[in-house]
Amino acid sequence: MKDLKVGIIDYGCGNIKSIIGALKHLGIIKTVLVNSENEIEVCDCLILPGVGAYGHAMKRLNANNLIMPIKKFVYDGGFILGICLGMQLLFDRSHEMGTFDGLGLISGTVKKLKKSDNNNFKLPNIGWYSIDKKKNDYQSNNFLMKKDLINFYYFVHSYAAFPNEPKNIIASSSYSGEAFAAVVKKNNIYGTQFHPEKSGQAGLNILHNFLKIVMKKQ
């Protein structure tokens, strides 16, 4: 696994250092910071981080001329893992402060979470929650193992993805009584709404699962 070249999309919208730290902890030596098309070509897989606003993030990807190269990488069978906003960017569009197109790699929309009337559930949703695996996870490729389901993961978000195809939801979580997609997968495309790099050993396990999947396909 140490020879795996993991590309982290570096477009000014993510906590890159934490992801590099987590990968290093898992034994990945060759982290590639991806600022342009050229770097994508050498990567065995991509991680798309992201914090902040959806429209701004897409603008940054576009400004770095990364949208088409990312899509091409994925269409050619390359593995990608989107984290938090990075996962939301995989979808068709978001309604965060306007309507913005995403990468369109998974069919679905990003919408605002509900607050509760009694102010018990505030936004952003910040906290550690467990996830529920869906029954129709027929091809999850061991991205989520049974042991991963007893754990808690760190979420921080006000918006969440709602895939059009239920089969793309590998696990869900809920906030203020509303279920949303916590883990998504479509073929070689993976995403987590929570931050695996900030979710303790449980999160590191999920990152490790992803890297093992990439390894197997090498």
């Binding site: 250092k17 730290g21 902890h25 921080v156 931050h195 979710s199 303790g200 050993q201 999160g203």
Partner: peptide
């Protein structure tokens, strides 16, 4: 912070 966040994986 730099040292902590290379070995502590919580926010």
């Amino acid at each position: 912070v730099s040292k902590t966040t290379s070995e502590v994986f919580v926010p």
